[in-house]
Amino acid sequence: MTNDGLNASRLGSEEWPLTGGAMVPKKSLKVLRERSNVPGLLHLAAHIGALLLTGSMIYLSMGTLWIIPATLLHGAIIVLLFAPLHECSHGTAFRSRWLNTTVGMFAAVVSMRPFLYFKYRHTAHHTYTQHEHLDPDIVPFPSTLREYVLLILGVSFWPKMIGTYWRGLTGRFSPVELSFIPESDIRRVRREIVLTLALYVAVAMISIALHSWAAVIYWLLPRFVGEPVLRAIRMAEHTGAEESPDLLANTRTTLANPVFRTLYWNMPFHAEHHVASSVPFHALARLHKEMRPHLNCVANGYVEVHTQIIREILARRRFARQSSTGGPA
């Protein structure tokens, strides 16, 4: 499985030959693919700074109702660590390999996603983007508002996350997982999961010994309540786009403000990332300028995306009711 964006023939697989990569000139890609440590370190510093700021807001708001928005904001910054985890899994966040691995594993531990496991799962997502059965991360379009709300709340995410850790701990990976984890790396993936769980247990034991709620207040609770923010972002990337091999139509680019783009490491330029996943995050804005006329799925913000999704859900429900009663379609 490969998806480096150099040309259309190397995107996807025989089962799912992705298209769209041919429209990016090789000459442009060669320049855009240049990696550097500086942008990644600057974004990492901004992210850690934001975490310290929102963590301080929680500390200062203790005993007041202001702790609720402070916790929600801190949780949003925590779950956005998915962005450096994601970029490091591609090996493009930094020029140095050890930085990609170290920062990726740090973000993985904090956001509760095994780094190596995610790397292989995400490769399958890029190879089979929007394939109904082979894309492990496809989010089917919600058929009702209830289903939409449950997706946003992460009701299906948490059982999947717990299941991933349990199967990694016991070594009983599912057939789907064995389809994207190389046999030669199963032990490494399992070892990382076991060590991560051991670290979580150590944090719990130290917290109990010190009678400290710090881990809960500044990490676990915010991490939990912040998940809907990430669910909404992840849904915007593909949900409602075409379920076809056309990367220019099956992935959505969402135009966001500079602050959010910094904290989400330019991942709102998502169609660009899928077309050329070897291009580092800091060059995606430049790639967007070249690709913009060719993109079929672009939104002017996350509110617009979810407004469209909700309207489509309601429209489909109306059509279904009218069809069942014999009314006008």
Rank of each mutant, 00 (worst) to 15 (best):
A46Y: 10
L247A: 04
A249I: 08
N257R: 14
V194I: 15
N296M: 08
T64F: 12
A204R: 04
V275C: 09
D185G: 00
N266I: 10
T129Y: 13
T307C: 00
T239M: 07
S143P: 00
P293I: 09
S9E: 15
A232L: 13
F180V: 07
E192S: 06
W158T: 13
S277G: 13
V139Y: 10
K119T: 11
P17S: 07
E304V: 01
T54R: 04
T325N: 11
A315E: 04
R113A: 05
G104Y: 15
M235V: 10
L199A: 10
E272V: 01
I309E: 01
H273I: 09
N300T: 02
L51H: 02
H131S: 06
Y302H: 04
F281C: 01
A215V: 10
V225T: 02
L178G: 00
L32G: 00
P222I: 01
P17K: 10
Q322Y: 05
W265F: 14
G326N: 08
L99P: 05
I313W: 11
A198F: 10
A249C: 09
H43T: 04
A202G: 05
L284R: 09
L295V: 13
Y128N: 08
H43W: 07
I77A: 01
Y264H: 03
L73N: 00
P175Q: 10
K27F: 01
W166T: 05
A46C: 08
A50W: 05
P328K: 10
R261G: 07
L53H: 05
E227R: 13
P222M: 02
W158K: 06
G163S: 01
V201F: 02
A45T: 11
Y264E: 00
A204D: 07
T253G: 00
K160T: 01
R172E: 06
H133M: 07
L116A: 06
E290L: 12
N257K: 09
A241T: 09
V189D: 07
A249P: 05
